[in-house]
Design a binder for these strands. Structure first.
Length: 255
DNA sequence: AAGCGTTCCAACCGCAGGCGC
DNA sequence: CGCGCCTGCGGTTGGAACGCT
């Protein structure tokens, strides 16, 4: 079902994700957001490229993502929207909370395409859609079926990513939403790892830092954060190993 | 039980758009 | 304006799971 894991010529892992990798990525993003997909895997302790991490998060690990079990209503809506928008899967996905463009695309090709073909011959399809239209009618109905997001739902455009947030704002967001607070099994927000630059240097030089040979002077300014991050007043998300100890493992077991 | 074909979906790839410099 | 970087999108593929003979 999934591609066998392998390493490409750059040492990047490809193919199926292991539960450990999922755990690392999920934990990291839930704590720090996806501030930069390209850099994220290094900080999360993953030997994956950013694109792969983004895909895995968007299509599989996001808490609001639903898997399988398409309802008749969803099927009808997909078919209707496909008729309207064609293969613009992201547009279609926007009208189906919890469904990703990739999953909808797959679902279309494996199930609905055939059904659409059948029904376009008979006219069963249009009767189905008219039923659906009855519930969310007239212009803008695509938006109107955008069912209310659950309280913990994070849209792609949501401010989970701290790129636009200052440290204070991010902390406020995090505690207000209760999102990351709930992750702090062993304490409060102070548990977020914010070691000094010397700690970072120590960890790096002791060899349990990233697998990549970073030079501390090039990466961290005197605040201990990479210049490109510190400029925006953003707290540096720390490498996975430094942030997740036993509490993360405990959390993982609870999940 | 074994071999073969089909189904299905996670993941990859290439491209385009947006943005900053 | 051109360039490079990053992100997101849509098409395609790999291969495990499943069904059939």
């Amino acid at each position: 079902m999934v591609r066998a894991p392998f390493y490409d010529k750059n040492g990047m892992k490809k193919g199926a994700w292991s539960p450990q990798e999922d755990h690392k990525l999920r934990s990291y993003i839930q704590r720090f957001g996806h501030w930069n997909w390209r850099e994220l895997p290094k900080f999360a302790g993953l030997k994956r490229d950013g694109k792969s991490c983004r895909l895995r998060w968007m299509n599989y690990l996001r808490p609001e993502v639903k898997h399988g079990n398409y309802t008749e209503e969803e099927d009808a809506l997909i078919m209707k929207l496909h008729e309207e928008f064609g293969n613009r899967w992201s547009t279609i996905a926007a009208s189906l909370p919890g469904r990703t463009d990739n999953e909808i695309k797959n679902h279309w090709h494996t199930h609905l395409k055939k059904r659409a073909k059948r029904t376009s011959d008979g006219k069963e399809y249009s009767s189905t859609t008219s039923q659906s239209e009855a519930t969310h009618s007239s212009e803008g109905e695509a938006e109107s079926v955008l069912i209310d997001n659950p309280p913990n739902m994070i849209l792609e455009s949501s401010p989970l990513s701290p790129t636009t947030k200052s440290t204070t704002e991010l902390s406020s967001f995090i505690s207000d939403s209760g999102y990351i607070s709930s992750l702090n099994v062993s304490g409060g927000m102070e548990d977020i790892c914010l070691p000094s630059s010397s700690e970072i240097y120590e960890a790096q030089s002791s060899g349990d830092f990233w697998s990549e040979p970073f030079v501390v002077e090039n990466i961290y300014n005197q605040d201990g954060y990479p210049p490109f991050l510190a400029r925006g007043g953003l707290v540096l998300p720390l490498p996975y190993e430094m942030c997740y100890g036993d509490s993360a493992d405990l959390l993982y077991q609870l999940m």
